[in-house]
Amino acid sequence: MTWAIDLQNITREFTVRRPRRVVRAVDDLTLQVADGEAVGFVGANGAGKSTTIKMLTGILMPTRGTVRVLGRRPVPERRHLAREIGVVFGQRSQLWWDLPLRDSFAILGSMHRLAPSAQAARLARLVEGLDLAPFLDQPVRQLSLGQRMRGEVAAALLHSPRLVVLDEPTIGLDMISKEGLRRFLVEDRAERGTTLLLTTHDMADVERLCERIVVVSDGRTAYDGTLAGLRDSLRTPRELVVDLAAPLGVLELPEGAQTVAVEAGGIRHRIRFHAAEHSAAALLARITAQAEVADLSMAEPAIEDLVREIFARRP
């Protein structure tokens, strides 16, 4: 397998003063991301996410360990790597503050040595997909935060990078704009096979864009796997919401499942259970043997709650 990102046992330490001490921001972290994979890289503030991104983009050197990105060493080969990665990183803008957004794209296209025809075609796709046309000729300083973030994403994607690193890409966007950005990123990845590393506090971004989630805490990996696996590993209960055709005060449930609420005069029952103990199908069969079911839905635990649970369980 070819790794777009290959971090092996990396540690990054900083020396601070008053009092003088060594702070370990990243602690023996190993992370591998395959070509074409989409990974959500999440954790609380101070967990080591930003420091890790700075090391894989060549801004920082690890104190210990090895870093390979697209087969290159980020620091000594930073100029070559810049042609193959696109980054939206925190408050670091790559747009020119006093120039119209269109001019920033023209400058970036020249910096990446894009052929005029290729640049025009790519920019047209980005303008349409990210809905940039209404403010393309406005100076960047006049844009709202949401508009500027869409411009930042377009700037990161302009040269069709193999690896895209996005840090909080939907910050400042309304719900419609968020969903539009997510839809475009999904479509663009499908077309180009781009690798995506996403850091965000909006867990809907992770659920919509990523097949895998890596949770970091204190500079170390707390979880690495699928969202479904995260839910299973924490044994977080699921909730089955059942609407009956006729009111019923009490449903007889198997051991380990419990009714947490009865609403609408006995029509709606909210039942909490663990997937390791009961399947939804078996539970539904038990219910339909007692009453006619008119409607049902399943409520999965929110990913924010899952991440919070991981942090709460760490010593």
Rank of each mutant, 00 (worst) to 15 (best):
G90I: 04
E179M: 12
T200H: 02
R18W: 05
V293W: 02
H274N: 13
L244F: 09
I5E: 05
E37C: 08
E179T: 07
E304S: 14
L60H: 02
D174A: 03
V260Q: 09
A124T: 14
R272C: 01
R21P: 01
T199Y: 02
R272T: 07
V242M: 08
S279D: 06
A264L: 09
I59T: 10
H159E: 06
S177R: 12
L296F: 13
P76E: 03
K49S: 03
A222S: 11
A246M: 09
T236G: 13
E152N: 03
T66W: 12
L114H: 08
R235A: 14
Q91N: 13
F105N: 01
E13C: 11
R189W: 11
E179Y: 14
T194F: 00
H201G: 10
E77W: 00
S233N: 13
W96R: 10
E13D: 13
G146F: 05
I310W: 06
N9I: 09
G266T: 08
S279K: 07
R313D: 10
F105W: 01
S93T: 11
T259I: 13
Q290R: 05
R162A: 08
G151M: 00
T199A: 13
P237T: 04
R235N: 15
S110A: 15
R182V: 00
D218A: 15
V165R: 04
R78P: 03
L198P: 06
Q142A: 15
L99F: 08
P301R: 11
L157S: 02
D243N: 11
L253Q: 02
L143D: 00
E168M: 03
A156W: 01
N9V: 11
A282M: 15
S117A: 15
V127P: 02
S110H: 15
A294D: 13
C210D: 07
A154T: 00
V293N: 06
